[in-house]
Design a protein around this nucleic acid. Structure first.
Lengths: 220, 220
DNA sequence: TGTAAAGTGTTTGTATACAATAGATAGATT
DNA sequence: AATCTATCTATTGTATACAAACACTTTACA
């Protein structure tokens, strides 16, 4: 695994928490490589929107409530568009991939509840499903944009607050979306996906205050 | 002006034409800097989608007809969304900026027709208008996404094929969009912007074959 | 005591040398 | 003549040294 992936993982799992300052020199010591690859990784992370540039160095990005609102709304816009296209362009192979992701989610639901492993497995299955839909849309440009608007740290944390009902509701939505895509029904795929993501948005916003210290840490 | 801006400009103006191979070493000679800043510039240009990575080095990006279709459709989706938000969130300052862009366009229309300077001035005024709308939407995330989906080289070239009617039609649309934003009419702002950009799309697609050698150069 | 200037240490920007790797070329073997 | 392999060359990856820029602290002076 490269330095970029390592640092990214450290940010997502809050080894480097929001607001944490990152300097090239310090990172060379953490990861035992020279400044050159560190610089490159930082540039990529900046592009990902995972870190915020300062006059010197970076800090791990923090998100305001307004940021979350805007990011989720855009994700709803783009992914519902992708879902509609998927309903028109999907191949048999795409359908298989999506159904496999649904199965993985189903299996993850059977794991020991509220366990870290279950969380990990659900996050993984969920992202497989969304990836499958985007792939089926057959539009690389929309894929790239969605990548830019999906905020990994938030995804990771939000699922951890899901209770059994939330998990199941999300699962049902996946099945509805998949059905619409299989049936070549772009309108339904679109609205279902939009609803699915806006529910995610409301959930995250609702839990924003409780986890605020982690998400909304500001620089003093 | 930095190396990044220089190379970017060279790509937009086709000093480095589509398909042209860019190696770090060669670029150090063209711009008289060491490989370090060149590497950084290339990474940024890759993020911008202006160059395509190869196993070694890069080539200046080429766009297929399908690419153009997808990119313009996404731009229509995002900018019409931004226009709707602008109609809700715009300040008096935003309105002034947008009207100023419209005035600049008007002035550019009076210049000597089909001149390179006129082209430049219209491209400039047009991008000021769109920037104004996006700014008025008061949503930095949507701005970043649109930046990623607006393809500079194409903008530059497409205006050069505009005749007087096209230029005027585009101007009228700007006024319609601006009016809707001033009147706090999000629906109208949205549909007008969508229509405006889809017309741009159709125009570019229509002229795709004629300029195909420049745009669609492939690697042999 | 407050303010500005100078100095000091930290951090990034740039150049460059060397290592690693992929691609091309030429030679050997069938 | 075709193909496989070894070697050579072009190009990128990485480390590191030095220069420049900036933030912070201390000191001089009002």
């Amino acid at each position: 695994m490269g330095v970029y992936e390592n640092i990214k993982h450290a940010i997502i799992t809050e080894v480097y928490p929001p607001g944490f300052r990152l300097t090239e020199e310090a990172l060379t010591k953490d990861w035992n490589v020279s400044r050159t690859p560190i610089r490159e990784a930082l540039k990529k992370l900046e592009f990902d929107g995972l870190i915020t540039p300062l006059k010197r160095g970076f800090i791990v990005r923090t998100f305001s409530k307004e940021d979350l609102q805007q990011v989720y709304d855009l994700r709803a816009l783009l992914e519902s568009y992708a879902a509609a296209q998927a309903a028109m362009n999907r191949t048999e192979e795409d359908i298989l991939f999506i159904q496999e992701a649904i199965r993985a989610y189903e299996i993850a639901m059977l794991m020991k509840e509220k366990d870290m492993d279950q969380n990990q497995a659900i996050v993984e299955a969920n992202s497989r499903f969304h990836k499958g839909v985007i792939e089926a849309s057959c539009n690389n440009h929309v894929r790239d944009l969605i990548d830019k608007v999906v905020v990994l740290p938030l995804m990771f944390r939000s699922f951890y607050h899901f209770d059994q009902t939330d998990i199941d509701q999300s699962f049902q939505m996946h099945k509805t979306i998949a059905r619409a895509i299989v049936n070549n029904d772009p309108d339904r795929a679109k609205t279902a996906m939009q609803e699915h993501i806006l529910r995610g948005r409301d959930f995250v916003l609702q839990h924003y205050e409780s986890g605020a210290t982690a998400v909304n840490q500001t620089i003093d």
